[in-house]
């Protein structure tokens, strides 16, 4: 595919990624810091024959994409933390109906309305199931504009492959940041649409539901879902920067990971053996890779824009829990390079 570099914000890059992945139905309700994304879809979807709906609420938006996807459209909604909380019931419902959609959360400070600055306080909600019932969705954590674009396309591909909601989990800074983007259309495999509701002409009727009254029926279905969630482990992605010989390893995702990479760059110039382990899929989490890398180092410092949510997964992954320490900022504040270096035990 030919490519070109343009300057886009992270929010706009998600929108373009979605359109190129074939998204033709978007419903959303405005909320900062992701408004540019809704605006982008409003402008862009009509150009490609798609449908844009500014819904009356987040509940309406997520239920609209449930309907659109059930009828065979590639569909997406996007919001920020408080809006995503309102969508949890429908996300659980779609996991139960096996309806593939893409949901983007450009996180802001919380709880409640919190504020509009970037934050990472929704990790547990995203990865452990914010809605009810034994379900998961794949969660991608991009850390720059190019990845906002790329992983949105991946989210569409994998939502179709597994017939499951997939989330792109960004934060306000990633939504707002502008960086050069190389626009490349990913090759998406043809979709199996043998389940969509498009009118039962000359075929047996189909049913999409999440209700299984007999216990044995529901448990059988649960086992099928759990098997599917396990198969998603094939898709695990992570990135190691200078981890091979690292004595101290920072674990971070999204914006926090970028700050950590800068710290490692400064440290390496001063001869410090530091590295960064960056999970890219937060569900499924790269437990095995981190376990292996954790064996060879003295200390692991988890850095998040939260009170310590991914920290729980890091503790599950690492054998020697005594190695693990945490540094977090909340409320839209950012981890500071000097503080990270101090906690690594160095006055670089």
């Amino acid at each position: 595919m030919p490519s070109r570099k343009v300057l886009l914000s992270g929010n706009e890059a998600v929108g373009e990624g979605a359109v190129l992945a074939g998204c033709r139905f978007y419903a959303g309700y405005p909320i900062t810091p992701q408004n540019e994304l809704t605006a982008y879809m409003a402008r862009r979807l009509p150009e490609v024959g798609g449908v844009f709906v500014q819904a009356e609420s987040e509940l309406a938006a997520i239920n609209m994409i449930m309907g659109a996807s059930s009828a065979g459209a590639l569909a997406m909604t996007t919001s920020s933390s408080p809006g995503i909380s309102l969508m949890q019931e429908a996300i659980s419902y779609m996991a139960g109906m096996e309806v593939p959609v893409v949901v983007v959360n450009v996180m802001r400070g919380g709880p409640g309305l919190g504020n509009i600055a970037g934050s990472q306080g929704d990790y547990l909600q995203a990865t452990k199931g914010g809605g009810h019932g034994d379900y998961h969705m794949m969660v991608f954590a991009p850390s720059n504009v190019q990845e906002m674009f790329n992983f949105t396309q991946e989210a569409f591909r994998l939502s179709q492959k597994y017939r499951n909601p997939v989330m792109v989990l960004a934060d306000g800074y990633l939504g707002q940041i502008m960086e050069p983007l190389e626009i490349k259309k990913a090759e998406l495999p043809p979709q199996n649409q043998g389940w969509i509701l498009d009118g039962a002409k000359a075929r047996e009727p189909r049913l999409l539901k999440s209700l299984y009254l007999p216990s044995e029926d529901l448990e059988g279905f649960n086992l099928h879902l759990q098997d599917k969630f396990r198969r998603m482990e094939e898709e695990i992605l992570w990135e190691g920067s200078e981890v091979e010989d690292a004595e101290k390893i920072l674990v971070a995702y999204g914006t926090s990971a970028r700050i950590c990479k800068e710290v490692v760059r400064i440290g390496r110039r001063a001869g410090k053996k530091w590295g960064v382990f960056r999970p890219i899929t937060l569900f499924p989490f790269p437990y095995q890779a981190l376990q292996k890398i954790g064996k060879g180092c003295e200390k692991i410092l988890v850095v998040e824009m939260s009170s310590g949510q991914m920290l729980e997964d890091v503790l599950l992954a690492v054998d020697d829990k005594n190695k693990v320490e945490f540094y977090g900022r909340m409320g839209g504040s950012l981890p500071e390079k000097e503080e990270i270096m101090k906690r690594l035990g160095s006055g670089v």
């Binding site: 570099k5 300057l7 900062t32 810091p33 509009i116 600055a117 306000g172 800074y173 707002q176 940041i177 502008m178 960086e179 050069p180």
Partner: peptide
């Protein structure tokens, strides 16, 4: 970007 440098820009946003 035109000069082929790496570049990032974060605006203050919101209020």
């Amino acid at each position: 970007l035109i000069e082929d440098n790496k570049v990032t820009c974060i605006p203050s946003y919101g209020a």
